[in-house]
């Protein structure tokens, strides 16, 4: 990579409601949307693994780590946390017209963000978010950027001179791939252990910039963003009640044990 000016990694991060407070999430029965007021946000956990990967590549080879997020303006403190972990700067894509974007619209907006940033080697994402769990954005983003995409990444080794080795988890094993940047990668948690935010990191983050861009700067086709640009329409949202199931098993002790064993296997408990 010595031949390159800049080894830039873009890390897409999404602010999500802290799962520790999910008991406070309720549903608005009229609008069928989730009420999230008062629930603190965190960086989507898998995105932290993506950020850790970016930071360790930068620490080893130099370059720049840029955070990219599409979120309302109140998400800025969450980006600040990513900066405190060690990212160099952050871009927040925020515009009322983005509201209601599904994964495809989000990918359009993020792709515009990537282009706005300019040249880059890598785009890293978490494999999925804990609130949406679609695992679609990363591939859609790669497609829109016309770049190769590897998902389910559990190993990432960036060597000198435009080469990298990627380990991808598949159903019954792993695939080792060789790739050349630029590339879009989404990671699993097995990839690494994200570093803790240090106090020096928190201090350093105070003087790092968060650029907030609206669609004026990004110029995404309005037909591709927000509810308008979202082919996915939610048909309905319902609250599931979890109740303990009860079943009485009868018979002789041997029969009961047999029946229990069967159930234990059937429900995949062991």
């Amino acid at each position: 990579m010595a031949d390159k000016e800049m080894n830039r990694t873009i890390v897409c991060i999404k602010p999500v409601p802290d799962p520790k407070h999910w008991n406070k999430v309720s549903m608005d029965p009229d609008t069928q949307t989730l009420r999230r007021e008062g629930i603190p946000g965190i960086i989507n956990p898998l995105d932290k693994h993506a950020l850790e990967a970016a930071l360790s590549i930068r620490d080893a080879h130099g370059g720049e780590v840029v955070l990219l997020s599409m979120a309302p303006p109140f998400a800025a403190p969450i980006l600040r946390e990513g900066l405190a972990m060690g990212a160099d700067r952050a871009i927040l894509l925020s515009d009322p017209v983005f509201a209601g974007s599904d994964t495809l619209a989000t990918a359009h907006i993020l792709a515009a963000g990537c282009r706005w940033i300019g040249e880059f080697d890598l785009v890293l994402c978490g494999n999925m978010t804990i609130d949406g769990s679609t695992a679609q954005v990363c591939s859609q983003l790669a497609e829109l950027l016309d770049l190769p995409n590897v998902m389910h990444v559990t190993g990432l080794d960036r060597q000198a001179g435009d080469k990298m080795t990627i380990t991808q988890k598949i159903e019954h094993g792993h695939v080792r791939l060789e790739a050349k940047p630029p590339i879009v990668i989404s990671v699993r948690k097995e990839l690494n252990k994200p570093r803790y935010t240090s106090f020096t990191g928190i201090l350093a983050a105070e003087s790092k910039t968060i650029d907030v861009l609206s669609n004026k700067e990004l110029g995404v086709d309005p037909n591709h963003v927000g509810l308008n640009g979202s082919p996915t329409k939610m048909a309905g949202l319902e609250l599931r009640e979890f109740k303990r199931a009860r079943e009485r098993v009868g018979g002789s002790p041997e029969e009961i044990v047999q029946a229990l064993l069967e159930k234990i296997h059937r429900y995949g408990i062991i």
Partner: peptide
């Protein structure tokens, strides 16, 4: 302060 809140979270 925001710094103190971040410290607590960390």
């Amino acid at each position: 302060s925001e710094r103190e809140e971040m410290l607590r979270k960390a």
